[in-house]
Amino acid sequence: MENQAVSSSALSSGSTKDKKYKGSSHPNRAFGVIIRKEIADHIRSWRFLVLVGLVLLTFVASLYVSVSNIRTAFTNTNDPDHAFMYLKLLTSTDNAMPPFHVLLSFLAPLLGISMGFDAINSEQNNGTLTRLLAQPIYRDNLLLAKFSSAIMIVGMLFLSLTLLMIGGGLVLTGVRLEAQELIRIMGFVFVTLLYVAFYLSLSILLSIVFRQPATAALSALGLWLFFTVFYPIIVNLVIRAFLPDPAYLTQAQVMGYNEFILDMMRIAPNQLYTDAATTLLMPSIRSLGPMSMEQMAGAIPSPLPVKESLMIVWPQLSGMIAASTGCFAIAYYLFMRREIRS
């Protein structure tokens, strides 16, 4: 206590006279500061290590399977996509194990949920949320920083995995990488990120709604399970209840019903993701809906150009962007005017 008066006066003389130590009073710098801290936190957390381990395991296992299978896949001339060696690396399988992109459709939600389910509520339970929001930062910056730091990390992870895969393929086979393969693979990474983004913003939303991180995590996992397992069953049950006997329908009507079922399925984000990912990775897919005989007539089973594939998946992409943005908007709405009390 004796030297306290001295030191505090030293501080005060420095602080009251000149305010030089204060930087420009722009609250937007805070955004970068929060992102830096969040990324550091994520990287040092055990949870992240576990997730990286899981993704790496998936990657190595599926790569091993597809590399051992690549010769047959590459020389299978019945398959119009057989010439795309690098796409085959990601999609081919010996049927013992699902290919990489299917495995990722399970892992991506897990990644998104686990990065976001305690974003807000753990801060609130720790009492750090009040402390944070008593500083001159915008509330939406906090939400956005939580979201973007997780997306950056997942993005870096996927990007390096994919580049590793491409590089490994180059070294192992010496086959030249086509430009359109690169575009397709990067598109696939982007689509996967969007899928992660949806579950991330959903879990951030739940972390605002629920006070307990466990509840938020469980409900996010529940929603994911609902969309992947129960939603298709429910859609089938409901549609079958009022679907007339197909024997009495014209072909156009049957097509119409099929189209309708598919549209209902596409409310689920995992359907959107699977559609988009397969279209990008398998260039011979030309439509995601049913096609009539007239449309098929005269078509040569050959791969589509990149642009056409992108055109096909564009609705899926916008659907996923819309779903993530929607979740984020609700989160924003709930968080902006809420009372912050520890």
Binding site: D41, N126, G127, T128, T130, R131, A134, S342
Partner: peptide, 8 residues
């Protein structure tokens, strides 16, 4: 705040 929390 009355129960101030820090990043542990």
């Amino acid at each position: 705040p009355d129960s101030v929390g820090f990043y542990n």
